[in-house]
Design a protein around this nucleic acid. Structure first.
Lengths: 341, 341
DNA sequence: CAGCGCTGTGCAATGCTTTGCATTGCGTTG
DNA sequence: CAACGCAATGCAAAGCATTGCACAGCGCTG
């Protein structure tokens, strides 16, 4: 049983391979006689022919494949972004080649090499960190590359992000509006634009209201539950009067903070009001339900995909940075009110 | 600036392309003179040469790419599985082409077509449903295909699963051991082996102990939070005396059940003890913390990758079904005790 | 000096599809 | 009837890396 190739179909139908190629490509099917076309199509269908994407890609210089670089697939908030990218591009026959970096520069380098080798049509990365400028700029010269979620000033690459400055501001204004007078943050890593912006937005808004922000003991090395716990402990151990309103730079850290508060016998929200970031799936079900900032991840992914496609079609295009507004989701951890629902 | 190809390197170094090819392939580098090899390697490095994976794949019939088919990247428990697959295969130079089915048969078909077209070396699917037998068997004849997480009797494909029968049994025995005498289940879709096995294991264990299991009002259409809420409502509305121990077939449904109980003014665990399944990241932080069954997802992914590789190397091999034991994680929702930690 | 067994290289073919150009055949027009 | 246009198809090259085979060169041996 020989493999089903274009040539094989051509032999079966008695026409030339190029005619088969044309007959099967919707864009060029009009060039071939309706009768021939139908014959070719039925034979191809009955044999279960699938064009060899490698040969096709080699010939035309397009693979209909794009690379998606993420830090960690386990992070709940990357899923909607990928889905947004995927759903947008899937309808155009694209598939995603996924690479994880675990926030390690060496893995980013390897991932980009692999994607380059496989001739992806575009790359979307949600894993940019300070320090990645050079390698991303280099790859961006030959392959349309879009930054999603995290931007990176020195890279010169188009970016589609959440407006984290606004997110930080929303968090600050909310805590102030529910009566907090001594604020604090549990900050994420400084190499990542999202956290930098959240911190800056929060600080600026607090300043504008004349509300003090206690210095954070440290920056989160990885923005996860144990780190949130550790940073909250630091804050409580600082000797000063503890803060009455805390902004955790993501929900994981906020959940860690809840645990730390509980252990120290402090109540949330009575003693310390808390707000997280991302609106992860289960934050509505913690005790107390966690106030948070909701990000339009799916939409962001969709737009990043759109930008990537536009760059594939015209790589010279310059795309201005785009940022999507987040939304405050107040819940009991800051308001003290039971969830409305 | 012409593209950096094998031929280009060959011209620069003054040797034949085939020599360059050999010098750059660790497996055949020994065939070329050390001096030549080094010259070629330094020139290739300095030009940033990356072999064209399309041409390579076309020629050798191997792409070092595998397809991973999942239902939904947003589902928290698929992440560790993918990571297990990926981490295992990444070190061997493989990359993953990811496809989502959303549990829709048509999308599965399209996904498999795309993967076939792109000549992936192997396919790992975590999305098998009753009804998919024929299409999976067909693709499995030409591409090594491994079922992960969900098995499928009629497919004849090797499967690496969690032992969900055991998981169901653990749930039943645990509820019985903490004093429950009227059990019930919130079952997931019947087309998915995982849920069928959980239900069967639970039922069999309850029988063995002579403990009655109330009939479930319905099967979950999608095993998510709202469905859990709905099924729990059904159970409570059934008129009979309500159950005192409930096994939700996954954590999402358990969380939905918590909400339903709260709304009906029933306390958990005092009135109804509850256990979920999967040990999703945030179940430890719900109120009350949720008892659950922990699955070795990462390990499962790793092994599925292993099996896939062994099938790539020898497609005739038959691999016996493998299933990994889950672990009971008792928390306050069933024990009534505060979490130890 | 023929012959042997190596090693290192070169050569040409292969894998499959796409595409610009050439060709064929047919009908139309002046 | 010659010339022309047009639709449909065929032809061959291109895209890039890999690989079986051939060949040259080398140091020996009988």
């Amino acid at each position: 049983m020989s493999k089903v190739t274009l040539r094989y179909i051509a032999e079966k139908t008695g026409v030339h391979p190029s005619t088969v190629s044309r007959a099967l490509d919707p864009a060029r099917a009009s060039l071939v006689h309706p009768g021939t076309r139908e014959l070719v199509q039925t034979v191809a269908d009955s044999l279960g022919y699938r064009p060899n994407a490698l040969a096709s890609g080699l010939r035309r210089g397009r693979t209909n494949t794009f690379g998606v670089v993420v830090v960690d697939l386990g992070n709940p908030f990357v899923a909607p972004v990928i889905r947004g990218i995927e759903n947008n591009l899937e309808s155009r026959g694209f598939m995603a080649l996924i690479a994880e970096t675990q926030d390690e520069p060496a893995r980013l380098g390897r991932a980009l090499d692999h994607l380059r080798s496989r001739k992806v049509d575009a790359i979307i990365t949600t894993a940019a960190r300070a320090g990645d400028e050079a390698v991303l700029r280099r790859v961006g010269r030959t392959i349309p590359t879009v930054l999603a979620v995290r931007h990176l000033a020195g890279s010169g690459l188009p970016a589609v992000t959440h407006d984290d400055t606004l997110g930080g501001r929303l968090a600050a204004e909310h805590l102030i509006s529910v009566g907090c007078r001594r604020l604090a943050q549990l900050p994420g890593p400084v190499a990542i634009s999202s956290f930098v912006d959240r911190g800056a937005g929060f600080g600026a808004a607090a300043d504008r209201h004349g509300t003090p922000v206690l210095p954070a003991g440290d920056h989160g090395a990885r923005p996860d539950i144990p780190e949130g716990e550790r940073l909250m402990e630091l804050l409580l151990a600082a000797g000063d009067e503890p803060p009455d309103g805390v902004f955790a730079h993501n929900d994981q850290m906020a959940i860690g903070a809840l645990a730390a508060l509980r252990r120290r016998g402090l109540r949330c929200p009575e003693d310390v009001r808390l707000i997280g970031y991302n609106d992860s799936p289960l934050t509505a079900y913690t005790a107390p339900p966690l106030s948070t900032i909701r990000l339009p991840g799916y939409e962001l992914g969709r737009i990043a995909g759109e930008v990537a496609v536009s760059l594939i079609e015209d790589p010279t295009r310059t795309v201005p940075p785009l940022s999507l507004p987040p939304v405050l989701i107040p819940r009991a951890s800051s308001t003290g009110l039971p969830a409305p629902q």
